[in-house]
Design a protein around this nucleic acid. Structure first.
Length: 862
RNA sequence: GCCGGGAUGGCGGAAUUGGUAGACGCAGCGGACUCAAAAUCCGCCGCUGGAAACAGUGUGGGGGUUCGACUCCCCCUCCCGGCACCA
């Protein structure tokens, strides 16, 4: 065996062997329990980053662990290949997005392979391939038939940088999720998927996902935003016509306190009233411009203007003035609200500002009501009772709402209603590099779906976008087609689908990726749902909500028979690194890569500063943050693998912190992981034939084989416990403990080292598969460690004759007592009381009570 | 403001769920090997006092329950993440 650990050689050899033997090809086998382990597929941006390495290592550790546990495991990989970075790259260097994308895929695939992931590459897919997106189009047409997809023109979020529409989910703090550009409002026609039809199920089913992190479920529930209330109308007359102003409220019990109404700037009543009222028209225009563009909408000053329109209170008939308010959102409820300034903080502020009346209708005895300032209790839902509300006086919230809803219903002016925050999913994008929407516009027949037998509508792959709109609009060969209905000349739709459509069902496609006649086939029944999904928390709403919706839509179309796509979800933490910078007296702040910085410590190991290696001059620390280009604190996985090998990279990733937590990068931590693998290697290199070993073992041993064996099995027991709860950092520690124990009981081959090393290699093989594969063969443990059974701790090894119990006096640790492992409580008590330590600390007092915890401790209370 | 998650040595993090706090590793200090350095190996390493034995103290702060609390309960401080004119 080679003296020195040379990761590059053994890793390539192992990877070649796995590839040649198709070791990770997954085949449906009803006799075995299946385990579908999926990591979120990457966008082919160019090269892997540390987040990818962490994500896929977690997935691979779980994959390999379950394989050895006897599961039939599927771990596929693919590419989320449509999207805007490809178009931006095309504009920058004139290469068609398709070519850029395929080149990136080729490079990143090579990188993934060099990390030794147990992936079934036979199922690889890329969403930009027609054989994949054909089924996007096919399913879109089925949704269209069912009314689940539809066209409408409405005010949408427009990203001025990416030149496209964004879904509500893609707008964060008023800015585009990708570009960070302030989103504008535009009225544009587009196609929508009726995700709101599934709002109730999407919300309710969250309770049936015990394997999902609580915070992801909370975020989804908040996003869906179910709210119970009353929808009712204020009747009014305008230009001689009888109209109704509909509003929604969760506080119908305060209806008698309404002193005005407010509508959104985009509300039809506002536009009607603005005719012949230039001041109002100007104000409406100001609201439309400003509102969504302001990132700090919440703190924005409340502004309004009266419309001059008066409506009637539905219960009292009182005249109520309607205002336009910049705080009313067109996208929620009816885009109009009843205003009860006495019991709603926003309405209160608005009424004070414009001198509108405030009428108290809720009271809590003992709490004084004053018009001077808003009090928290004014909006108290639990303790408030109706006052000044006629027949409703004395009622609490629930009873008042019931009574008022019934009265409104009797007048045919409304009733109870559930309102959702969730909006339908707008999927039209005015971009080139995406899946074409399979529709044809005919002057005679209108919009006509592309017939199934003409799918896919293929996207030309040779376009080079120039930044001036969608290049498809200039492609006559794409645009011109025959109307499927009348056969006349027609034009294709040039909008493409949101790329989140592509990723909403790829996990199902892996199960039947080679079937070009159906979207999914029977094999989906075997593999799906995904048993373990792993990815970043940033997809908590977008991708994970869309996928859940898509699954339910596919189910209702009879394509799959499961309700939820991902049984368990692991959201891995981000990879962080420290930032270092210098801020010159004049000029811009400059960031230095941590690799070029040397840390300074005092004699006690306390950090006292950092200097740039190049010039020895100090740099400032900007704290720990996500790896990013702008902060120059990224670490390239490629360099890491080339220097230390994939096993070291994988081990460090698992060891540095538990998978759900953030991981702080540390060069010396990587060094430590490498050191451990080198130690493992050199231990194995000395693992000679038994006769020689026996003697040398006795000589060098610092610990008895029996004690070492106990430690090894105890560490294994802990590791198995931690594997089951996905705490891989302590699994890695356990492996280190086992090697420490092996080294303590002497080198060479003997009964304990043979057993211990066989345990260690198997335990470690999901994390560092290459070195374990090599050593397993080299030392003659067997043919292929992939087929070795998972190690289990033996009771016999864990049995002890004598145990040491902690001895406490009055709860304070004072020493220890040794007793036989099977000693009765009585004997332990007697032994403890008789011990020197007990006599010393009891100071002659009598024991009041003795607590014995078997196997743990004795506490004497005096 | 609301919801969720946190706070443990110089650092990353353990503590099998109420039973020896600081496992494992990093950094640091001392030593061996070396002409020297790197690599490797051995030892020490929460804080305070002490030469040491040892004693005291210690899991963000304060109180409580318990023989015993990082862990459970109440109050407070700070940090991170999400949502937020949602009517």
């Amino acid at each position: 065996m080679q003296e020195k650990y040379a990761p590059a050689d053994i890793e390539q050899a192992a990877q070649r062997r796995w590839e040649d033997s198709a070791a990770f090809r997954a085949v449906e086998d009803p006799a075995k329990p299946k385990y579908y382990c999926l990591s979120m597929f990457p966008y082919p941006s160019g090269k892997l980053h540390m987040g990818h390495v962490r994500n896929y290592t977690i997935g691979d550790v779980l994959t390999r662990y379950h394989r050895m546990r006897g599961f039939n495991v599927l771990q596929p990989m693919g590419w989320d290949a449509f999207g805007l970075p490809a178009e931006n790259a095309a504009m920058a260097n004139g290469v068609p997005p398709a070519q850029w994308t395929y080149d990136n895929i080729a490079y990143m695939k090579k990188q993934l392979k060099s990390l030794g992931f147990a992936i079934d590459w036979g199922r690889e897919l890329a969403t930009c391939r027609p054989e994949y997106y054909k089924w996007n189009q096919w399913l879109f047409l089925r949704m269209l038939e069912k009314g689940l997809a539809y066209k409408k023109t409405q005010v949408v979020n427009w990203d001025p940088v990416d030149q496209t529409v964004l879904a509500n989910e893609q707008v964060i703090d008023g800015r585009g999720w990708r570009t960070g550009a302030a989103v504008e409002k535009r009225e544009i026609p587009g196609y929508y998927l009726a995700i709101t039809q599934y709002a109730d199920e999407l919300l309710g089913a969250l309770d049936r996902l015990p394997g999902w992190p609580e915070r992801v479920k909370t975020m989804q529930a908040n996003w869906i935003g179910k709210s119970h209330g009353v929808r009712f109308a204020f009747p009014y007359e305008l230009d001689g016509r009888r109209e109704k102003l509909w509003v929604f409220t969760t506080r119908a019990d305060t209806i008698m306190g309404v002193t005005f109404c407010a509508v959104a700037a985009e509300h039809p009543l506002a536009s009607t009233a603005a005719r012949g009222n230039p001041a109002l028209a100007a104000f409406i225009e100001e609201c439309k411009q400003g509102s969504v563009m302001e990132a700090d909408m919440a703190t924005m000053e409340k502004k309004g203007m009266p419309t001059g329109v008066f409506v009637s209170h539905p219960l009292t008939g009182e005249k109520i003035e309607v205002w336009v308010g910049n705080y009313v959102l067109m996208g929620y409820g009816e885009g109009a609200v009843m205003a009860v300034p006495a019991h709603d903080e926003r309405d209160f502020g608005f009424a004070k500002k414009y001198g509108l009346p405030i009428k108290q209708v809720i009271d809590i005895p003992g709490q004084p009501f004053s018009l001077d300032a808003w009090q928290e209790w004014y909006a108290d839902k639990e303790n408030g009772r109706c006052v000044h509300s006629g027949k409703y006086d004395g009622l609490g919230l629930a009873a008042a709402v019931d009574a008022i809803a019934a009265d409104l219903q009797a007048k045919d002016l409304g009733g109870k209603q559930v309102t959702w925050r969730l909006r339908d999913w707008g999927i039209s994008r005015q971009r080139y590099w995406g899946c074409p929407i399979p529709l044809i516009h005919c002057e005679r027949c209108g919009t006509v779906p592309v017939p199934d037998d003409q799918l896919p509508v293929a996207l030309p792959e040779d376009c080079v976008p120039d930044g001036a709109g969608n290049p498809l609009n200039k492609r006559e060969d794409f645009l011109n087609c025959a109307c499927p209905k009348c056969g006349g000349a027609a034009r294709r739709e040039t909008d493409t689908m949101d790329t989140f459509v592509d990723s909403s069902w790829y996990y199902s496609r892996y199960a039947s990726a080679d079937n070009h006649r159906a979207m999914v086939d029977a094999r989906v029944k075997y593999w799906l749902p995904v048993d373990q999904y792993i990815g970043g928390i940033e997809h908590a709403i977008l991708h994970l909500l869309y996928s859940r919706f898509w699954t339910k839509a596919m189910r209702d179309l009879g394509l799959v028979d499961f309700d939820e796509p991902f049984s368990r979800l692991l959201t891995q933490g981000m990879v962080l690194n420290e930032t270092f910078f210098r801020k010159p007296a004049a000029g811009r702040i400059r960031y230095y890569n941590p690799a070029d910085v040397e840390l300074k410590f005092d004699d006690k190991g306390n950090r006292i500063g950092a200097v740039l290696k190049e010039d020895g001059e100090p740099v400032e620390s900007g704290g720990i943050g996500t790896m990013s280009k702008s902060k120059n604190n990224g670490v390239d996985p490629q360099a890491l693998i080339e220097r230390y090998g994939a096993d070291t990279a994988r081990f460090f990733m698992m060891f540095a912190s538990p998978p759900e937590q953030t991981l702080e990068w540390s060069d010396s931590g990587v060094e430590g992981s490498y050191r451990f693998l080198k130690r493992l290697w050199s231990y194995c290199a000395r693992f000679g034939p038994s006769a020689v070993a026996e003697a040398s073992a006795k000589e060098s041993a610092k610990e008895s084989p029996k004690a070492a064996r106990f430690e090894i099995h105890a560490a294994l027991k802990q590791a198995n416990y931690d594997f089951a709860r996905f705490q891989f950092n302590t699994v890695a520690s356990a492996a280190m403990k086992i090697l420490n124990a092996l080294e303590r009981c002497g080198g060479g081959r003997h009964a304990v080292s043979e057993e211990g090393l066989s345990i260690l290699l198997r335990l470690l093989s999901p994390i560092t598969p290459h070195i374990c594969d090599h050593l397993w063969r080299e030392l003659g443990f067997g043919d292929d460690i992939l087929h070795a059974p998972w190690p289990e701790p033996l009771e016999a090894a864990l049995a002890q004759d004598e145990v040491e119990l902690v001895l406490q006096v009055n709860g304070k640790l004072r020493g220890a007592v040794k007793v036989p492992a099977d000693a009765a409580k009585k004997h332990i008590e007697a032994a403890a009381l008789a011990s020197e330590i007990a006599l010393k600390y009891m100071e002659g007092k009598a024991a009041k009570k003795v607590v014995v915890v078997p196997g743990r401790l004795v506490n004497i209370v005096v």
